[in-house]
Design a protein around this nucleic acid. Structure first.
Lengths: 332, 332
DNA sequence: CTGAAAGCGCTAACAT
DNA sequence: ATGTTAGCGCTTTCAG
């Protein structure tokens, strides 16, 4: 195994017979250089296989080129896809994500934040699900959230969840459902997908029926809970709008176990529409979030904040909601 | 937005009325300290909300506390799960992963490696799929691969793929299949899952039937290609062993479209058995890789290499193959 | 027990 | 056009 000693600027300088400053200049393409020395330095650089030490550069520039990416778990298809697109968008700005899985635990997220600040990340993109962590307020670092309202002054990018809820519910009604139930992870005022669902049902004068199963329950409790929740409304409903595709998958399994035909006996619509999910369950009818757009937007907002670094005016950026699309499958 | 100026050691020192050296000592718990000053410094530390600058520490210690994690894409369930477990295992050693998606492109992987070395990551864990990138040989940095033979001296952790191939194939035969086809992403001598498949068929005196569809084809070409591949063997086969669960999902869709009952007309077995996949397609019969074990083993090997840093004896670590398990679903 | 000072690898004045 | 030097924020001898 090669000795772990990377060549330094001085090694290149010595080799090229110039000073470190000169090497630094050709590296950063700054100031006046004679073609001759530039060439000589270039040669020396790849003779010794020199690669600038970004750590040293960071110390001076106060920029590490890294961004903390916090998600509940990249094993969840939605966040896996988010991670890919974020990484891609960051790369276009010469940034790399430090991956953090919070598992939905507030304590872990707190530790992660400390660690990221310690590493002096240039910014943080948070898609975690713990609402309102006070720590974010005192971070002294640019933050952008994905599908999560953290605080009024923190930019938030998300899909148009309420419209998505409306589209899903309307689609079920259009296909003949009379009693669509909402299966979600947390039912509350600010659940916009739920609000869309309730809105459409109100117009249609249909009584809403909501069942909730906590997103962060461990398996197999979660699956059991979902099954039980569906059992509890089984007699009265003829369709399910699931606020994410994973719930929808379990709803399909529930129907299968109960010999209920989909969409004949019960219609199912999901939410998220990740590429992976559509590959695994191509038949699933769902509402697709514009993940790639959301991610490039989030990165753009973050980079803008990083750009005006010091402590400039907050440039008010309200929540940005991007349009969703209906993916017609054969489950609704 | 708060000014992006983190407090420095000097700020704490001034506040506590001591020198920076003393603050450094309490931070690192080194040398002799009077309880009085220690307490005073501690107080000062959290009065100013001090958080050590890891960048500066890294410059001195030659350790960044970061590890490059290269995978084709965390949006792929297997690699998403790998990423989660790697992050978890790294965290136990105070390390964080810098996430890199190679999309299976060798040129991108080359760039990623350069960038990671530039960032002076403490090590690299590679689960990417481009075989034999020469760059790895000259990395001067600890490397461990997951499910990938890079070079004889680079430790590799993987599932017992050949045994998995055998188990899958045997299971199909046991369930009555007479002509199981292998659907894989690349057919060749060193495809161990394929070797297991061929081995069992040889014993049973059944002619193997292999169709391959490149893993890195973009959608929707890939799905089309898989469908076509299955069409091409449709008449002669009665079962499919897919070398990953994504292929299996598409095989199920193929059967659905052709009104072929599963497992009545055609039996399907997959490979990987990630938690996510099992949640989405709980009925799928598959061979589960011990992902958590593989990841903690990979991290352990990496940390050992990092520990003996300089350029010590390579401590020969042959490929480690961990046992797989059969997940009985209802597709075989 | 604590402080002063050197230096990690690099960039940016300031000289020459 | 190129070299010298002073830090970036921290740890670590070496003094005291």
């Amino acid at each position: 195994m090669a000795a772990n000693k990377e060549p330094r600027l001085g090694d290149v300088a010595a080799r090229a017979g110039v000073s470190v400053a000169t090497v630094s200049r050709v590296l950063n393409n700054r100031g006046y250089l004679s073609e001759a020395t530039r060439a000589r330095v270039m040669a020396a650089i790849d003779e010794v296989g020199y690669q600038p030490n970004e750590v040293a550069r960071s110390l001076l520039s106060h920029r590490t080129g890294t961004v903390g990416l916090i998600v509940p778990s990249v094993a969840i298809p939605f966040f896996g896809e988010v991670a890919v697109h974020i990484e891609d968008a960051l790369a276009q700005h010469g940034l790399r994500p430090l991956l953090c899985n919070s598992y939905g635990r507030a304590d872990r997220e707190r530790d992660l934040l400390r660690s990221l600040v310690g590493h002096r990340v240039d910014g943080i993109i948070s898609g975690a699900h713990n609402d309102q962590l006070a720590e974010y307020a005192t971070l002294r670092r640019p933050v952008v959230t994905i599908d999560r309202e953290l605080a009024p002054h923190i930019p938030n990018v998300r899909a148009d969840n309420e419209e998505g809820g409306r589209l899903a519910t309307q689609l079920l009604l259009d296909h003949g459902a009379r009693r669509p139930v909402l299966l979600t992870s947390r039912s509350h005022e600010r659940n916009l997908r739920e609000r869309g669902y309730r809105g459409v049902l109100a117009e249609a004068a249909i009584e809403p029926l909501v069942v909730a199963v906590d997103f962060n329950l461990p398996e197999p409790e979660r699956t059991t809970a979902i099954m039980a929740a569906l059992d509890s409304v089984s007699a009265t409903m003829d369709a399910v709008f699931c606020t994410d595709d994973l719930l929808a998958a379990t709803a399909l399994e529930w129907a299968h176990r109960h010999r209920r035909d989909v969409p004949g006996d019960v219609r199912v619509v999901g939410f998220d529409g990740t590429a992976t999910m559509r590959r695994i369950l191509p038949g699933l009818t769902t509402i697709a979030q514009p993940i790639a757009d959301m991610c490039s937007t989030a990165v753009r907002l973050l980079v803008e904040q990083i750009g005006q670094e010091p402590g400039a005016e907050p440039t008010p950026v309200p929540a940005i909601a991007l349009p969703v699309t209906v993916v017609e499958g054969r489950t609704a």
